[in-house]
């Protein structure tokens, strides 16, 4: 595999981890978030600070990064209890801008220059880059997918689905909507923080612009394209939106236009996403899958 392919692949896998996290918030708990890049950024900055200033390794810093990501997700998830739908969307956009501005203007976070010199990840004495780093990311993606799969299987998912569709009816069933919304935010943002940490160690240099609002829109587009609330949707969506821009590189100026069109078309014709419950692709795949099981 050429190093170009490996680079694209690595970025796609890292983004897929973040989009899986977004899926927990948007797909499972039904809370729209247009500020997911903020949590991706919080993970990246935490990892970068801990490795450059505190001298921790990726592995020792990782639990901290995930915990901090989850904790800030918890704090910023609190508004979701009070505001809903379009107001929540606007609130999360605001969060994204605030987080980005803090990174850009607070000198402690490197200001406009960003943070450079982030060390590579060392695994059993070997510095990971290229193919080995891609493998590491794939392992993490696999773990994240396992967590998502587990979430759809356990009690919490039934509660989350219930809260997503009928909040007050859920509360009359003994389900606290507060707890499950916050749980989804914490799990989702922890996943984004993990992705951010991988991103920081891969790029070795980060800057506030890497986590701006358009990145959030990108994440949401990937999720909507792939299918909200499905297991593989985030991966498929990220893969398609990660590969397409490379194929159509000459059209780079029209990327946002293309994203917009794609989102509109998806919402009009396949609102459940490519892998959603009633999507064309699922209809094609269903007989094959069923045969596989039998």
């Amino acid at each position: 595999m050429s190093s170009y392919t490996i680079t694209i692949g690595t970025i796609i896998v890292i983004q897929a981890i973040a989009v899986c996290g977004l899926n927990v918030i948007v797909g499972y708990a039904g809370q729209i978030s247009l500020g997911h890049a903020a949590f991706f950024g919080i993970g990246a900055y935490t990892a970068a600070m801990l490795s450059t200033k505190a001298g921790l390794s990726f592995w020792t810093a990782l639990p901290l990064v995930i915990a901090i990501g989850g904790f800030i997700g918890f704090l910023l998830g609190l508004p979701s209890i009070r505001v809903r739908e379009d107001f929540l969307a606007i609130t999360t956009i605001g969060i994204n801008f605030i987080v980005e501005a803090v990174f850009r203007y607070v000198p402690f976070f490197g200001g406009a220059l960003g943070i450079g010199g982030i060390p590579r990840i060392v695994f059993f004495g070997e510095r990971l880059k290229g193919m080995t780093f891609l493998l590491l990311c794939l392992v993490f993606l696999f773990l994240v997918l396992l967590v998502c799969w587990w979430l759809t299987r356990c009690w919490a998912s039934l509660a989350c689905y219930a809260v997503r569709d009928e909040e007050s009816a859920a509360s009359t069933m003994g389900i606290s909507h507060v707890r499950f919304k916050l749980l989804a935010f914490v799990i989702g943002t922890s996943m984004a923080a993990l992705a951010g940490s991988l991103y920081a160690h891969y790029m070795q240099f980060i800057n506030a612009g890497d986590f701006s609002f358009p990145v959030s829109v990108g994440f949401l587009s990937m999720l909507v394209l792939g299918g909200m609330g499905t297991i593989w949707g985030p991966v498929i969506g990220t893969l398609i939106l990660g590969v397409l821009p490379e194929i159509f590189r000459p059209l780079v100026d029209y990327r946002i236009l293309f994203y917009t069109l794609l989102l509109l078309l998806m919402i009009r014709f396949q609102p459940g996403g490519l892998l959603g419950e009633e999507s064309a692709m699922r209809r094609v795949l269903a007989p094959i899958l069923r045969r596989g099981k039998a």
């Binding site: 039934l158 689905y161 219930a162 569709d165 009928e166 007050s168 009816a169 859920a170 419950e277």
Partner: peptide, 9 residues
């Protein structure tokens, strides 16, 4: 009133 089921379960 009006059942309020969880439509997608």
């Amino acid at each position: 009133e009006r059942s309020r089921l969880f439509p997608r379960l």
